[in-house]
Design a protein around this nucleic acid. Structure first.
Lengths: 180, 180
DNA sequence: GTTCTCATGTAAATCGTTACATGATTAT
DNA sequence: ATAATCATGTAACGATTTACATGAGAAC
């Protein structure tokens, strides 16, 4: 599922310009997929060429013309075809996790700061998603929002419940018990 | 955190050949990071050039010589330097999630199959990790294994608890209540 | 007999980001 | 003044995968 296909998907929700599609990526796919203009604009050009979307130029004053894209019937079919393919494996690249794998090489203080920040960040993301859940969303979007919330709550909870495994390690090694 | 750095990390756990590092990626980073030979071999060549690892060739019969890499003191420092950098954001690309976002475009039957398979897969992964948890692992590795388990359990649980949101939709729309 | 494991490496292709190029308007 | 929002697009660069190249031995 490349960015080209995801643009098509966003256009099933309504017409949009390249600029607006970028915002949609941030709104709907935030933390799942990201896309830059450098991939969105060429994708839209290609989709137009292929007949999956049409493009109408709206003249604007003091700005480049706004190009509004609409998905075609053919585009809708192509998108559904793509959706019906068995989804590939999730691909997560987490520097946070990679770092913690080597926690024993790092000072406890540094780890604590990292974990604190991660928990803050996860809880912040959950708050944002909860807010978005209140708005008008399709059942699919609601399911995915709930999924994101559940995952990030589980993340925060796991970190809080298990941070002692890496933070408290020095205190738990034999012979390193604190005096008193 | 690129593959080059991760190779260095794996070598902090002990000497290894390129082939073995590939296996380590599957063992330790499975579902977090993946790496192919096409990225590992050039990475090791570059690390050797930079003095972060040394390479010893073991002649083998009927096979290419095995090149065993060991991390140097300099390499260890460089790796820790890298670990101390604030980790970048997690980057997840999930075709599964992207597909569910557009669940309303798909037949319920197809969704059910996808969800079933995802739950099976998550529970299978959890079982594998639980087995690995029994072996000898560093505290960091234990933390990360627990994290992976917690995440995938949360995933399976969320899907089971909320699949009706997308599967049962037809039954819940007004006027579509089952007779009886 | 076909697939898996072991073992290394290169080259092409893919996919995407970052930086560049341009420029007015509005909010802080 | 400085940044953010609006608006499009190209070109260079980067990271990684896939396919190619080679080949024996063991297991099924």
């Amino acid at each position: 599922m490349d960015i080209r296909t995801l643009c098509l998907g966003i256009l099933t929700l309504g017409e949009a310009s390249g600029y607006e599609i970028k915002q949609s990526f941030e709104d709907h796919f935030s933390r799942f997929y990201e896309a830059s203009f450098g991939s969105i604009y060429p994708a839209l050009a290609k989709l137009t060429e292929e007949g999956f979307v049409t493009c109408t130029e709206l003249p604007q004053d003091k700005r480049p013309d706004k190009k509004v894209y609409r998905i075609t019937a053919q585009g809708r079919l192509a998108f559904i075809d793509e959706l019906m393919k068995p989804p590939g494996r999730d691909r997560l690249r987490s520097e946070f996790i990679a770092t913690l794998m080597f926690a024993d090489l790092l000072p406890t203080r540094h780890l604590s700061d990292m974990l604190d920040e991660r928990v803050r960040d996860a809880r912040g993301a959950v708050a944002e998603w909860r807010a978005r859940e209140q708005g008008r969303v399709t059942p699919g979007q609601r399911f995915v929002l709930g999924y994101a919330i559940a995952m990030h709550e589980a993340m925060a909870r796991y970190i809080e419940d298990n941070r002692h495994l890496i933070e408290g390690h020095a205190l738990l090694t034999p012979g390193a018990a604190p005096a008193g």
